[in-house]
């Protein structure tokens, strides 16, 4: 497919067919030896899927709005290599506020990456997802305030450091 800018895009194709087949075979094999546990695993997966459905929908809507409102130039200005402090802040806050498993966000991040969002910001976004706001009260009850605050602080520092390392590696490449 040739785009307006003359770039050649590979044809989109289904990803993960072989993985799905392999996992299905694993289920079939495990069912022969541990039928109860395998059914339990299947039910757990279904429950995970149901739990994730609202987040999937939210991500699809976010991606749609993003695609409609932002062109590559705008995205690049906000989150590209020249975005500066604003870009890092967006990545940090976005990572902290984003909900659900990381892999749900991968497709959106890949789309942003195609629009020249730097790998450093993506790495920072993914690492700050370690801060799980809804679970913080529980963490405090298990490990105390001091531990929770210190750990959160170092996660933010670590996320920024990793982002900067990736930026450095990308610029060397």
């Amino acid at each position: 497919m040739i785009t307006k800018t003359g770039n050649t895009q590979p044809k989109a194709k289904l990803s993960g067919r072989y993985l799905l087949l392999l996992v299905a075979l694993s289920y079939a094999l495990l069912y022969c030896y541990y039928p109860d546990k395998t059914l339990q695993a299947l039910l757990k997966s279904l429950s995970t899927l149901l739990h994730l459905l609202p987040v999937f929908l939210a991500v699809i809507v976010l991606m749609g709005i993003f695609t409609a409102l932002m062109n590559a130039k705008k995205v690049s200005k906000l989150l590209g290599k020249q975005s500066g402090l604003r870009g890092w802040l967006i990545a940090l806050i976005g990572g902290i506020l984003s909900h659900g498993s990381s892999y749900i966000w991968y497709q959106m991040l890949v789309d942003l990456r195609k629009q020249k969002v730097s790998d450093g910001l993506i790495v920072t976004f993914l690492y700050t997802r370690a801060i799980k706001l809804p679970w913080l009260p529980l963490m405090v009850s298990y490990f105390g305030y001091a531990f929770t605050v210190i750990l959160m602080f170092y996660i933010i520092i670590g996320a920024l450091a990793q982002g900067l390392i990736v930026e450095k590696l990308s610029s060397q490449n």
Binding site: S45, I60, F66, A68, D111
Partner: peptide, 24 residues
């Protein structure tokens, strides 16, 4: 734009399903 984002997700459904089944 929404069609594109739905299509992007749909193309990754086998992988996502595989990962979710694996987590179970």
């Amino acid at each position: 734009a929404f069609y594109k984002s739905v299509k992007g997700f749909a193309l990754n459904l086998p992988m996502l399903t595989g990962i979710i089944l694996l987590t179970g």
